[in-house]
């Protein structure tokens, strides 16, 4: 494991925990897209089915289990426990426009035409666009709580660091995975606009609000 992978994984974990903690402490999921969180739960579930077929390391297994559990806990808090605070009217992104094309692409472009491989590929493609409902919600309401922007920053940082991880692995291990790299690039690009706002506004102590 290289330094980029290490920091990326913990940045990802930080993002997940920041979100859970925010919802739990404020007893509210206002401003959070439940749809993005459901997509992330689907991403983890379909990707980590390999927990049942192969053991890689204690670190690998623990992180996968933590990611899956936290994502389900988040969905539970949004749709069950704090349902009254869920802002469904603003969470109006049509997820079928993501899931259906991504499913089709996973069937067409994959490493091996086998169920687990197709589900793994599906999860990679889906993860690259899963944040769109959340970004759409922010663009619709024109603002985001600062803690929500920290969550998004950690999530974007995780993906950006994975790009460095892949460059590292290509040079030092001769390993690269085209599906993950292309999807990772797409995912990172989606965060660029947000990164700009985060650096120019949030880090200067201002609230993230978009011009009307």
């Amino acid at each position: 494991m290289n330094i980029f992978r290490g920091i990326a994984d913990f940045s990802h974990l930080a993002a997940i925990i920041i979100l859970l903690h925010k919802i739990w402490k404020s007893r509210s999921c206002a401003g959070i897209s439940g749809k993005s969180q459901i997509l992330f739960a689907i991403v983890f579930t379909t990707r980590y089915l390999d927990l049942l077929t192969s053991f890689i390391s204690l670190y690998n297994t623990s992180m996968k289990v933590i990611y899956i559990s936290c994502s389900y806990a988040t969905v539970y808090l949004i749709y069950m426990k704090f349902r009254a605070t869920y802002d469904g009217n603003h969470d109006s992104f049509r997820v079928e426009f993501l899931v259906v094309p991504v499913g089709g692409l996973a069937v067409l472009i994959n490493h091996d035409f086998a169920l687990l491989e197709i589900l793994w590929t599906f999860s990679i493609y889906l993860e690259s666009v899963a944040i769109l409902p959340q970004l759409f919600m922010i663009s619709k309401t024109g603002e985001a709580e600062t803690i929500t922007t920290h969550y998004l920053f950690c999530l974007g940082l995780y993906r950006a660091l994975y790009l460095f991880n892949w460059i590292w692995r290509f040079y030092f291990e001769g390993f690269f995975d085209m599906i993950a790299i292309v999807a990772g690039l797409v995912q990172t690009v989606l965060y660029c606009d947000f990164f700009y706002l985060y650096v120019t506004k949030v880090l200067k102590g201002k609230k993230l609000s978009l011009p009307a």
């Binding site: 992978r5 994984d9 990802h12 390999d50 192969s54 890689i56 390391s57 690998n60 992180m63 996968k64 990611y67 490493h111 793994w120 994975y162 991880n165 291990e173 390993f175 995975d177 993950a180």
Partner: peptide, 10 residues
């Protein structure tokens, strides 16, 4: 194998 290398990532 390549497959295991991929599944090592999270």
């Amino acid at each position: 194998s390549q497959e295991l290398l991929r599944h090592d990532e999270l």
